[in-house]
Design a protein around this nucleic acid. Structure first.
Lengths: 179, 179
DNA sequence: TCGAACTTTCGGAAAGGACCGAAATAACAA
DNA sequence: TTGTTATTTCGGTCCTTTCCGAAAGTTCGA
C-alpha cells in the first residue's frame, strides 16, 4: 500500500499524538492507517506499509481490538484476517473517553473511598487531610455522575447539543436561581 | 513531617494515577503531599518526607509552578521558599484539563488543518482520505468550540450545573426540535 | 567580599517501555 | 498425516524517561 505525503503526515502525527493520549505510538499509527484506508488491511500490509515488525503489528492489533476500535473482517476467498476500524468518529472518541475514565478516574474514586472509610473511624489528628480528601471525593463523584448522565444520551443528541452553539447561555438559562 | 497510613496511601496512589494522566510520578507525589499539607512546605521537608532527591524536588516544584498548581509562599523570618498548592479542586482540574487540551488537541487540530489545506488543492486520488480527515477535523472543531463555551462560564456556574442532576433531560429540553 | 544557607543545573546511572526477530503455535489444504 | 501459510509468544536489545548526587549558581547577612 502506497502512502501519499498527506497520509504519511497524518499517520506520523497520529502516532505522536497517541503517545500524549497514553497510547503506544505504533499502535496509534496502525489505527491511523486503518482509519484512512478505504478497505480493511491484512497484518502484513500494515507491517509493510508502516515498516514495523510483523509481531508488533499483531500485538498492536490485539490492543486495538481490546479497545473495540478495530475489528477483524473476513474476505471471501482469503484465509488471512483483515482489519478495519470503526468509522464513526464520535463513537470512536466516546470509546476512548470511556476507557480513559476507566483507567484514570475509577481507580482514584475507589482509593479515595477506601481512605475516607479508614479515616472515618479514627476521629483524630487528620482533620485537615480528611477535609481535603472529602473535597476531592465530592469532585470526582460529581464528575462521574455528570459523565454517566451524558453517556446515557443517544449519540445523535450529543452531536446536536455539541453543534448547537451558545451552550453556555442556554445552560445558564435552565439553572435554578442562585442564592 | 510524619505521614499517617492514610496519607501515605493517598500520596502513593496520586503518584500512580499521575503517570496515567501523563504527569511524572514523583511530581504528582509532591503535589499530593502539598495538597494534604495544612501549611506550605519547604523543598527539604518534601525531599525528606517523600525520600526523593533534593534536586528532583526542585525540578518537580518548577514543573508544578509552570502548571500554576503550586506557588511559592514566603514565611516571615524564613529565607527558605515554602510551597503551597491551589486549594480549590475545581480550579485545579480546570487547569489540568486546559493543559491537556493544549497538549492533546491543539496540535492535532493544527496538523489536520494543514493537511486539509494541502489536500484541498490536489483534487485527486485521495478522495476517501480527504473525507475521513474532514470528519475528524469537524469533530475536533466541534469539541473545541464546546470546550471554549464552557471555559467562559464562571466557575461557580459550572459547579452548580454539574451538581444539578438530570442534566441530560434538561439538555434535551432545550434542544431544537429534530428534523 | 566572604561564607553560610539555599536553590538549580547537569551528566550519567538505573528503570521502564517499545520493538524486533526467532521460534512456537495454530489453521488449513492436499 | 505433512507441508504451507498465518498468527502469536517471548527473550533480549534499544531507546526514552526518571532520578540521583555532585558541582555550580544565587542570595543575603555580617
Amino acid at each position: 500500500m502506497e502512502l501519499t505525503t498527506a497520509t504519511k503526515e497524518f499517520i506520523t502525527h497520529w502516532g505522536e499524538m497517541g503517545t500524549r493520549w497514553g497510547i503506544n505510538r505504533t499502535v496509534a499509527q496502525i489505527h491511523a492507517l486503518l482509519f484512512i484506508s478505504e478497505t480493511p488491511l491484512t497484518a502484513d500490509e500494515i507491517s509493510d506499509t508502516l515498516s514495523i515488525a510483523r509481531s508488533t503489528v499483531s500485538t498492536g492489533l490485539h490492543e486495538l481490538q481490546s479497545w473495540d476500535l478495530v475489528r477483524i473482517v473476513h474476505m471471501l476467498g482469503d484465509r488471512r484476517d483483515h482489519f478495519g476500524t470503526r468509522s464513526d468518529v464520535w463513537e470512536m472518541f466516546s470509546i476512548v473517553l470511556n476507557e480513559r475514565r476507566r483507567r484514570e478516574m475509577d481507580p482514584t474514586l475507589n482509593v479515595l473511598r477506601e481512605i475516607m472509610d479508614e479515616l472515618g473511624d479514627s476521629e483524630s489528628e487528620d482533620e485537615f487531610t480528611r477535609e481535603r480528601l472529602q473535597e476531592l471525593l465530592d469532585f470526582f463523584e460529581t464528575i462521574m455522575s455528570l459523565y454517566e448522565q451524558l453517556e446515557n444520551l443517544p449519540l445523535s443528541s450529543v452531536k446536536n447539543i455539541a453543534k448547537m452553539g451558545n451552550l453556555a447561555g442556554k445552560l445558564l438559562g435552565i439553572m435554578p436561581v442562585q442564592k
